[in-house]
């Protein structure tokens, strides 16, 4: 009886980290976060299931936040759905997309389409704003990570642009 009592009280001790924490700790936006902070973030994530060929969001739809792929495949598509669309990237387990919507209230620049039975974890702007209010140091860490991700993307885009311009000059 006594054992059961103590077992009940310390039920969370030695408990393995949740599946969600295991996934999100690999995401650059949640880098440098300690276990407690990761647990706090995981409470804010929305677990969503998508069928094959179901849109996660369409291009020009208002964006509210980012998605992390728990399992499955998601295609990022640019161009019009009517014909000249092009798959920009095929994302799978542990990848993330739509992070720009965390920082600005703008429409989506590309569409995201589930290719398979897909499980996504959504992290949205209102929740990030609430997190910044409640736990500013954690919110600050996420914002810093987010700006690092955006900077890396920008640098890569610049490199691609310069490569293209060089190619054009050489031609």
């Amino acid at each position: 009886m006594k054992n059961a009592y103590w077992k009940n009280i310390f039920t969370n001790w030695g408990k393995e980290e949740s599946e969600t924490v295991t996934i999100i700790k690999r995401i650059p936006i949640f880098a440098n976060l300690n276990h407690k902070e990761l647990e706090e973030v995981s409470k804010l994530l929305h677990d969503r299931i998508y069928k094959p060929d179901e849109y996660v969001f369409k291009r020009h739809a208002p964006g509210e936040g980012m998605f992390i792929i728990h399992s499955g495949i998601v295609n990022i598509i640019v161009g019009e759905a009517s014909g000249n669309s092009q798959v920009l990237a095929e994302l799978s387990n542990g990848d993330f997309f739509g992070e720009m919507a965390l920082m600005e209230d703008e429409v989506r620049s590309a569409a995201a389409l589930a290719q398979d039975h897909t499980r996504l974890l959504g992290f949205f702007r209102p929740d990030l704003e609430a997190l910044i209010e409640i736990n500013p140091s954690l919110g600050n860490k996420i914002l810093q990570n987010l700006s690092k991700v955006v900077c890396t993307r920008l640098r890569k885009t610049n490199e691609l642009l310069m490569e293209n311009q060089l190619k054009k000059k050489n031609k």
Partner: peptide, 28 residues
């Protein structure tokens, strides 16, 4: 509060999910 909001939001179909979040956020 945040868990309660999350449990309500989970009933929104995928198609209207982000829009639903937007409406709830704006009302709030």
């Amino acid at each position: 509060y945040y868990e309660f909001k999350k449990s309500i939001v989970q009933f929104i179909p995928n198609k209207y999910f982000e829009m639903g979040l937007r409406v709830i956020f704006n009302i709030e």
